[in-house]
Amino acid sequence: MQLIQIDKARYRKHLNRVIVGCAASLAIGSLAISQTLIALFPDESGSHFHWNLLGVIVTSIGIGWLLNKYRTHPFMSEVVYVWELKKALNKITRKMAKLKAAGREGNPDALLAIHYSYAGSRLLWQLDDNTITMDDLAIKQAELDSVAAKYNLTLNADDYDDAILKQF
């Protein structure tokens, strides 16, 4: 997955609309379904927990289906890209201990994966205005750059392919 620059204002606007739309749909849909089921199948004891739960589950499945169906729509492009980037970074994070160990030994694939993780994290943190942890990231990046220089490697995030994680 290539790292691309995203229009931050457009991304935030679209993400906020998706979040509000999902929250409103969940509230309205689950209430509509559960109230309909309660009206059709009333419980003598007054407990309608199972109908409320079913309303939430059915609505959640519907929202998930809609998000998946419209993930290729131009409105969703930035939001889906960030979701996919987070997924790719989570794959790397799960293997980070092994990657760092191999990186200290000069494994170029491990160093490239770590570099991609740092570059992707920097992009996400800038989109989310998470500047507090940028200093820590800069320190880690400097350490990575020194290890790469020690082994005479040039790291480019564009060269990353998640298939290299299979060896770790």
Results as ranks from 00 to 15, higher is better:
Arg10His: 15
Leu53Trp: 13
Asn107Leu: 00
Val147Glu: 02
Asn152Asp: 08
Asp136Thr: 14
Val18Gly: 10
Pro74Asp: 10
Arg104Thr: 11
Val80Met: 08
Ala110Leu: 01
Ala39Arg: 09
Ile63His: 07
Ala113Thr: 01
Val56Ile: 15
Met96Arg: 08
Tyr81Ser: 04
Ile38Arg: 05
Asp158Ser: 08
Cys22Met: 14
Val147Thr: 05
Tyr118Leu: 07
Ser25Lys: 06
Ile6Asn: 03
Ala27Ser: 12
Gly29Tyr: 01
Asn156Pro: 08
Gln35Arg: 11
Gly29Glu: 02
Asn52Val: 10
Tyr11Arg: 09
Tyr70His: 15
Arg17Lys: 15
Thr131Pro: 12
Ser77Pro: 13
Leu127Asn: 04
Ser34Gln: 03
Lys150Ile: 02
Ala157Gly: 03
Val82Arg: 02
Arg94Met: 15
Leu111Lys: 00
Ile132Asp: 15
Thr59Asn: 07
Ala119Trp: 00
Ala88Glu: 07
Leu99Trp: 02
Arg10Met: 11
Leu89Tyr: 01
Trp125Gln: 15
Ala138Cys: 08
Met96Asp: 06
Asp161Cys: 07
Gly29Ile: 02
Asn90Trp: 11
Arg10Tyr: 13
Ile139Tyr: 11
Asn16Val: 08
Leu37Phe: 04
Met1Leu: 07
Asp128Tyr: 09
Ser45Tyr: 10
Tyr118Asn: 09
Tyr116Arg: 01
Arg10Gln: 14
Ala23Asn: 13
Leu165Trp: 04
Tyr116His: 02
Ala39Tyr: 06
Ala113Ile: 01
Ala102Asp: 08
Cys22Ile: 13
Ala149Lys: 06
Ala27Pro: 10
Ala88Cys: 08
Lys140Asp: 09
Leu89Ser: 04
Leu153Met: 02
Ala138Tyr: 08
Ile114Trp: 00
Ser146Tyr: 03
Leu155Arg: 00
Asp109Met: 02
Leu155Pro: 00
Lys150His: 05
Lys86Leu: 11
Lys69Leu: 13
Asn52Gln: 15
Gln167Phe: 08
Ile57Lys: 12
Thr59Tyr: 05
Arg122Phe: 09
Ile63Gln: 07
Asn90Ala: 14
Ala39Phe: 06
Ser146Leu: 06
Ile132Ser: 14
Asp43Pro: 11
Ser25Arg: 06
Leu155Cys: 01
Ser77His: 14
Val82Gln: 05
Leu124Asp: 03
Ile114His: 00
His50Pro: 12
Phe49Lys: 14
Ile19Cys: 12
Asn90Gly: 14
Ala88Pro: 01
Leu123Ile: 04
Tyr70Lys: 10
Leu127Ile: 05
Asn152Lys: 06
Leu123Trp: 01
Lys140Pro: 04
Gly21Thr: 14
Leu153Ser: 01
Gln167Leu: 09
Leu3Val: 00
Ser77Phe: 07
Leu127Pro: 04
Ala148Thr: 00
Gln126His: 12
Ala142Ser: 05
Phe41Asp: 11
Glu78Ile: 03
Ile19Thr: 15
His48Glu: 10
Ala102Met: 08
Leu127Tyr: 06
Leu67Pro: 08
Gly62Ile: 07
Gly55Ile: 05
Glu78Trp: 02
Thr133Gln: 13
Leu31Ala: 12
Ala119Tyr: 00
Asn152Val: 03
Glu105Ile: 03
Thr93Pro: 06
Val56Gly: 11
Leu99Asn: 01
Trp51Gln: 14
Ala149Met: 04
